[in-house]
């Protein structure tokens, strides 16, 4: 049980936790938060993979670390868009829920 494996398990648990949050929490904001948890769990796995691939004096394999940085910025952009959407929906309807008003009368063009 070395350091990378420990953080690997931590990443796996974070992913499971985030997925639980994504499925269960009704408010969209909490879902966005849960999505960020899952994202950070996956990036932690990238970090673990990088750490396991450490060689030639580098702290870890630089390629997954580069992917993590790109991933974090993508996740942030997604969060920003999602939050903007939730706020706009809240301003428009006074409530930000995902359940459609009534499932049978969906929107029209």
């Amino acid at each position: 049980m070395n350091v990378p494996t420990l953080f690997g398990l931590c990443g796996a648990v974070l992913v499971g936790l985030g997925l639980y949050g994504l499925v269960v929490s009704p408010q969209p904001l909490r879902k966005i938060l849960a999505f960020n948890l899952v994202g950070s769990g996956v990036f932690l796995l990238f970090g673990v993979v990088a750490r396991r691939g450490a060689a030639l004096g580098m702290g870890g394999d630089p390629v997954p670390q580069a992917l993590v940085i790109t991933g974090i910025v993508v996740a942030f952009s997604a969060t920003a868009l999602a939050v903007a959407l939730v706020l706009r929906l809240h301003d428009m309807t006074g409530a930000a829920t995902l359940a459609p008003a009534d499932a049978d009368e969906p929107p029209v063009a």
């Binding site: 997925l19 994504l22 499925v23 269960v24 995902l98 359940a99 499932a103 049978d104």
Partner: peptide
Amino acid sequence: FGRLDAVLRRWPAAAMSLL
């Protein structure tokens, strides 16, 4: 079928069916 589709298109059901 219509009701099945409506049930499957609620968020918890869809997310759980994904997992």
